[in-house]
């Protein structure tokens, strides 16, 4: 790009030419001048000052009344200049904050990272996408030495930074649990104590915890107020809600959780999700749960990972690519 001369003399020549010729080319150059001024942090009042000086040079015999009116114009622009500088510095600060946030988000991703385990007889898919930079959803897979699969899915009530910090705490608490087979009700009970003790009142965590025994194909689970997941009956091709009751984590100190058990047949699926999935909106209206199920049905023939990705893409598009809430979806299918 050609550089623009920000000298007063240059401005004066432009002004002179425009007054004589009244042409578009000079106006274009004036546009370049103003863009370059912005780039070099020249304030609006300074441009006016350059204009006044140029005018006085070109027309030394300006009527005093007119000249004075220019001072008046300058005076009214001084505060704009100050505000302009302030906004510039705030914008720089904002960029700094943004890059810091991006760094934090990256770090969080690393912290919360979990590998989808490969277990014979199970096809597993998982996706978790934050609405903003930081994710307030969390999912985690644990495989114990006996080959049992533990799966956790959680959602902090709240979004952004505070929710993300809270999630990191939950993750580290879970990491500290012994690796041996832990029952879902016990895990929720322990986590509840930690959350209750360490998190602000007003911040809650919902969690669903499941334990899959790949030998007996029994699925044990418990819920702490988490968005109900779905069972898919492969044989009949229908979804039903996973019913599980339990208090949200962090409300009361001593809570016991009820544990449920279900046998998973060949072709069945366990679908776990957060309210970012069920609270998708079409325009102003929330989707009905049936509509969510209808969407899932379209993709049940796909491998689990493809299925969660396609479902996510469907909802993302539905919301014009602007997620309103963190979105997490897990599919576990029993296969041959």
């Amino acid at each position: 790009m050609q550089t623009v001369n920000l000298e007063k003399e240059n401005y004066k020549q432009l002004l002179k030419r425009f007054i004589e010729k009244n042409d578009e080319e000079t106006l274009y150059k004036a546009d370049l001048f103003s863009k370059e001024s912005i780039r070099q942090n020249v304030t609006p009042d300074e441009i006016i000052h350059v204009y006044i000086q140029a005018l006085e040079d070109l027309y030394p015999d300006l009527p005093e009344t007119f000249r004075r009116s220019l001072d008046f114009l300058l005076e009214t622009m001084i505060s704009y200049g100050v505000a302009y500088k302030e906004f510039q510095e705030m914008r720089e600060e904002q960029l700094e904050i943004k890059s810091e946030l991006a760094l934090a988000a990256k770090m969080q991703e690393k912290l919360l990272n979990t590998r989808v385990p490969e277990i014979k007889g199970l096809d597993i898919g998982a996706i978790s996408i934050p609405a903003k930079q930081m994710n307030g959803d969390y999912y985690h897979f644990i495989e114990d030495h006996r080959g049992n699969l533990g799966v956790a899915i959680a959602d902090v009530i709240g979004k952004g930074f505070p929710a993300a910090l809270c999630m990191s705490m939950v993750k580290y608490t879970m990491d500290s649990f012994p690796e041996s087979r832990m029952l879902p009700k016990r895990i929720l009970q322990l986590l509840n104590r930690v959350v209750e003790k360490n998190v602000d009142p007003g911040m809650f965590v919902t969690m669903f915890y499941g334990l899959y025994n790949p030998d007996s194909h029994d699925f044990y689970y418990a819920s702490a107020g988490h968005e109900p997941g779905l069972f898919y009956h492969g044989q009949h091709g229908v979804f039903t809600e996973i019913e599980a009751k339990g208090l949200v984590l962090g409300v009361e100190r001593d809570v016991t959780y009820k544990q449920y058990k279900r046998r998973i047949e060949l072709g069945d699926m366990i679908v776990l999700l957060t309210d970012g999935v069920t609270e998708c909106r079409r325009g102003e209206r929330f989707l009905e749960r049936d509509e969510v199920i209808e969407v899932m049905k379209q993709y049940t023939h796909l491998p689990a990972q493809q299925m969660v990705e396609r479902v996510f893409r469907y909802f993302e598009e539905l919301q014009d690519f602007q997620l309103r809430d963190d979105f997490t979806l897990i599919v576990i299918r029993r296969e041959n």
């Binding site: 100050v82 505000a83 302030e86 705030m90």
Partner: peptide, 20 residues
């Protein structure tokens, strides 16, 4: 701090004075 007074329309505020 920037934005403290300007956001309320109170004028340039002390940071503004500093800039002037």
């Amino acid at each position: 701090k920037d934005g403290y007074s300007t956001s309320g329309g109170l004028g340039a505020g002390l940071p503004g004075v500093k800039r002037l």
